[in-house]
């Protein structure tokens, strides 16, 4: 199954003016592919993710699954705001999607526990979100998304609210989890190192209007990208992306 984004455009109509947030967006996410959207602030990357996630309608173009074999595809989102339900404990949050799919009690119990173990939250099933640290909250958010076994996993800057150390650890863990699940993933970030570390392909967006500047295939083994022998190649990709973004990022800075 692949996901196709075709000619997507998005225009926001303000009371005063029209703002084109996205224009001419064309790409596909292949089965078991990890695609990262990267761009300066205000390039419309979150808008694009929302459109793909069905939380916003595009002004033009469409997004569709291909090769579904009549099966209703499902998707899951890991939110930047984490968006756990504060009145549900970790377990109840993780199995929310399963509950809504009408899964059996036994399936809910088994899958819920499986994914809680996978993200390393065992022992915290009964804890409420407010009792967890930021990193642990997002683990629960990831487990909630994984537990529905989605055909497409969307991640909207999932680690941007975390401190730098937690973030590095979470990136490593995400990679480990991804290598086990191999879910087709669309990941949004403004962090270039994160993009190079995680992606099969990086889509670089420019701003005003948001268009695809370049699509870069990261030709490195999926694990050990941060090791010493890969340092040079890692830097090369990072620099390449930074050169594409730098100008736009500077403009964004001046606009505030």
């Amino acid at each position: 199954m692949r996901i196709v984004v075709e000619n997507v455009a998005k225009t926001f109509i303000d009371s005063k003016r029209e703002v084109t947030a996205l224009q001419n967006i064309n790409f596909a996410i292949e089965e078991q592919e990890f695609v990262v959207l990267v761009g300066p602030s205000g390039c419309g990357k979150s808008t694009l993710l929302n459109i793909v996630g069905g939380l916003m309608s595009p002004t033009d173009g469409l997004v569709y699954f291909e090769g579904t074999n009549q099966k209703q595809p499902n998707l899951a989102i890991v939110f930047q705001e984490i968006a756990l339900f504060p009145w549900r404990n970790v377990f109840e949050n993780v199995v929310y999607g399963l509950e809504e799919q009408g899964a059996s009690k036994q399936e809910i119990q088994e899958k819920g526990q499986h994914y809680i173990d996978m993200v390393g939250l065992n022992g915290f099933e009964k804890a409420y979100p407010k009792q967890l640290s930021g990193g642990m909250k997002q683990r629960a958010g990831i487990a909630r998304a994984l537990s529905v076994e989605p055909d497409l996993l969307l991640m909207d800057e999932p680690f941007s609210a975390l401190d730098a150390q937690t973030r590095t650890l979470m990136q490593e863990e995400l990679l480990t989890i991804w290598n086990r699940t191999k879910l087709s993933t669309l990941y949004v970030t403004h962090n270039i190192q994160e993009a190079v570390y995680l992606a099969d392909r990086v889509i670089v967006l420019s701003r005003h209007p948001g268009t695809i500047k370049e699509i870069i295939r990261i030709d490195m083994p999926k694990t050990g990208r941060d090791s010493e022998q890969n340092r040079e190649q890692f830097e090369k990709y990072s620099n390449q992306i930074w050169d594409l973004i730098r100008h736009d990022a500077q403009e964004a800075l001046l606009e505030g």
Partner: peptide
């Protein structure tokens, strides 16, 4: 918080739910 409503809908909730 609207983000919670978005999350619920994303994970398959009907309006009633």
């Amino acid at each position: 918080d609207p983000i919670l409503i978005k999350a619920a809908v994303t994970f398959g909730s009907s309006h009633a739910n």
